[in-house]
Design a protein around this nucleic acid. Sequence first.
RNA 1: GGGCUCAUAGCUCAAUGGUAGAGCAUCGGACUCUUAAUCCGCAGGUUCCAGGUUCGAGUCCUGGUGGGCCCA
Length: 527
Amino acid sequence: MRARERPEGHAEGTGMYEFEEKRLEKLDAMRAQGLAVYPHGLRVTHSTAQVEALIGGRDAAALGEDSTEVVLAGRLMFKNEMGKAGFARVQDSEGRLQLYIRKNDVGDDTFNDVWKKLDLGDHVWARGRLMLTKSGEPSVHVSELRLAAKCIASLPDKWKGLTDPEYRNRHRYVDLFVNPESREAFVRRSRVVRAVRDFFEARGFFEVETPMLQPIPGGAVARPFVTHHNALDMPLYMRIAPELFLKRLVVGGMEKVFELNRNFRNEGVSTRHNPEFTMLEFYQAYATWEDLMDMTEALLGEVARKVTGGGAVAYADHSIDFGQPFRRWRMSEAISEKTGLSAEAVADPAAMRAFWIEGHPKDAKNPKLPSTVGKWYEWLFDEYVEEHLIQPTFITHFPAEISPLSRRSEAEPEVAERFELFVAGMELGNGFNELNDPQDQQARFLAQVAARDGGDDEAMYFDADYIKALSFGMPPTAGEGIGIDRLVMLLTGNTSIRDVVLFPALRPDRGGAAEAEAAPQPGVTQG
RNA sequence: GGGCUCAUAGCUCAAUGGUAGAGCAUCGGACUCUUAAUCCGCAGGUUCCAGGUUCGAGUCCUGGUGGGCCCA
């Protein structure tokens, strides 16, 4: 075999290079002996968890009389060689299980050419019988052992694991098999999504998929990603919300409809924001916003119960209970209580301005300060109220001014029949009676266009086709959106959205690019 | 975008401005029930990058890159 060329970027004596070099040598040696290093067609009969269940509580003597054979496979996470015998611990998607290998049982060839050459991280395949070790650990006494797939890279510290958040996020494939809590978070995420779908299916809702590429981005107040369609030679926007399309479907007669899918917002990245995130939106004709609050309590109660087994959920320093009715708190009252402003002051932009400047003297000449009640509500709420809403709380009666898609209250036209749900200081949901008056909607869009022209680049665009849809008549409808990533954060105890998004947005990794260019090329090294 | 902070071996971490170390992993050896196996031995470094200060920089300074937390 000719000497392998040292890849560019790996200086003489570089640890990483030599590590992989050694493993590649083993791989070449196995190939030379005619042993497959990436075989296909291997079958298993049991998972690690199933083998453990088979063993049950039986003692060593009982297992000795059981001739059941199991075939299992997994990644080698632990290897302990003791001369002519050894232990291995393999991990599959359901857990870990120990293997016991003796030279006498597997034969010299397998022992020397397979077992001794196995490296941590390799995928192994084994056949054997059930056993308990002397210390009582459920194990498989191996009669046949094969390499199922070679691992060339080196694994993180087997005891300390992998803690660097950057490495975990950039190399999720390693994080997932090294850190059980990471894996568990994504298993739970899957259960959350399933439980949400089950909830709506059971209530006769219809799941749909509406455009992610939209000619006019709508349905939320946010900056969109823009792209270009070459063949049509037109700009397209990644959706910031599916809302306007879902309501078109209600016009079309889909009276109970939901979508659970990705939205994209071209905004900052933080522990609570990822540029792409998963949103549930649902709409029901002839339901009201109050019905939606009831439904939200039922939904979150059911999802939390199914995913966590019930009871309060530990989150940050809090214990959050989804199991009972949520507080419903009028926005003006919440602001009044948390700021100490009177009910009259909370209706007066000048009074709110004075209060704000008292707390933020540097803003005295800030030209961006709000001038209207609605905008002041946003500012005061974000600053003084939101962080205090720990237990699930519906904030109700939003200003119509900042709710361009919501129906106004007939009794109080300046107020929208709209609520938002807050948990652990985070906005989790947003629901309202849908504005189905096309003339009012047109006026609201025009107000948004004016705001945009005035420099508000988050203001909504005018969507003429949506107005046309409403002109055909949308039945009285209520709709709501719930942020799934944040819900998963709450139900997994993670305070960063990056811990519940498999591949979160990160800046390009220069080091990683260099690594990729310099990587050894296992496929071209055989000589 | 701003503030604070971090970046040293594959991983987890040490190192008063004065010879870059440890544990695990890896490599060689011993061991037929180990549990972070044990024992013996070896090897592994562009201290994130580019400048600067200094007799001397992993350490101090400036700029950059990437991450984390907080704020916007």
